[in-house]
Design a protein around this nucleic acid. Structure first.
Lengths: 207, 207
DNA sequence: CTAACTTTGTGAAGAATTTCACAAGCCCCC
DNA sequence: GGGGGCTTGTGAAATTCTTCACAAAGTTAG
């Protein structure tokens, strides 16, 4: 398949979220126009985004809410559950471990690791924090595809190596560091301070 | 000034982070090439990004680390401190309130609000949680420019209205909702589940 | 069954962003 | 003080992403 831009995938996720809301309300069909408003884009953009994957609509009527939601889940790889481990049981790691939004989307937290003896042994939402020293041993059992990194920046890269070697294919990084991973491993970074800085730029340059 | 793309601003932030590391190491100059590697981009991109704001380098030598860092701080609006309030003292809100990275960048958390009586009155990192019902009254004193929203999605839009009316100019939203704000108010959204979904897409479509 | 209306799917145009490539400027050494 | 070696700054080209605009297809009403 042709390469799909990240911005497109991001919008597909947004469409799906809105479609699931509509499903709950029992709505049957929706037009690209309404879907566009919900995601802050245009109807042409919605149709173009979807057209990369096929044609799911009925002219004159729009899209079937349930059929499109189902298709988007497939496209996004949400048809299957994913096993996720969280590395770092600090404030952010603990918050994420207990975040309902992950499980609701099929992301199952199967392990949490930390090197601080004071945190090892604690239980967060049914999962016990393991010693980071046991990472490799435990990952052999857990076989997670995805890891969430909430560790200090200076150890983040080293953990990418260890996780990659243990078979992890996707890493969501919250440490303020630019990470490098081998081919076949996808790393995404979320940097809260950076988001505030973009806001700062916007406020400083108003008008 | 010509409009600057968000992707450019994002990279400027990354350059600044790396420059500050170099400052700590006492390094004096740096080339666009090295700066590019640190942010996962190309030297041409670095030079183009900087060129929007002037020309700061010396040919044959590169950029002065301290001078460029200083200039980037100005460009990003980090020369001044920003007052920030956090709305929602749940897991994520509390974690952010205590996050050192914010203060280090000049973002000062001056208020935290929640509607849950069990949370009102607690102290997080020196700031006492206030009742959300008192939001308007307290914002008159605090005069924050920025708000961080960590509330359930169904009340997020309503809070955008209240915050905007109270003079907030920038909102960093963690609720999984698409928000609309009047002109002159910037909203940025961080959606952790969505980031995992983008990862899911990448893993599902490998090769 | 027909006509008026709605909405999709998609090439083509347009806009935005990134990459290329090279002249010009500056340093350093001899 | 001249030459070799780097590195910047920047138009132009290439690429990527978004918007336009419209034929085609389906719906609804009468």
């Amino acid at each position: 398949m042709k390469h799909i831009a990240e911005s497109t995938v991001r919008r597909l996720s947004l469409y799906l979220r809105f479609l699931e809301e509509l499903e709950g309300q029992g709505r049957e069909t929706i037009s690209s126009e309404v879907l566009a408003d919900s995601g802050g884009t245009t109807s042409a953009q919605v149709r173009k985004d979807l057209s990369f994957f096929g044609s799911f609509g009925k002219r004159g009527l729009g899209y079937s809410v349930t059929a499109l939601a189902k298709r988007l889940r497939e496209i996004l790889g949400l048809g299957q559950p994913w096993q996720v481990v969280i590395i770092g049981a600090g404030k952010i790691g603990a918050a994420l471990a207990q975040y309902r939004g992950f499980r609701a989307r099929g992301f199952h937290v199967v392990g949490i690791f930390d090197s601080d003896p004071a945190k090892v042994g604690r239980t967060l939402d049914g999962v016990t924090v393991s010693d980071l020293a046991q990472l490799e041993r435990e990952l052999k059992q857990l076989k997670p595809q995805i890891a969430v990194l909430t560790v200090p920046a200076d150890v983040a890269q080293e953990l990418v190596q260890r996780l990659t070697k243990a078979g992890v294919r996707g890493i969501l990084n919250f440490a303020p560091a630019t990470l490098h991973a081998p081919d076949g491993v996808t790393v995404r970074s979320v940097n809260m301070a950076l988001e505030l800085e973009i806001l700062s730029y916007a406020l400083a340059h108003e008008r």
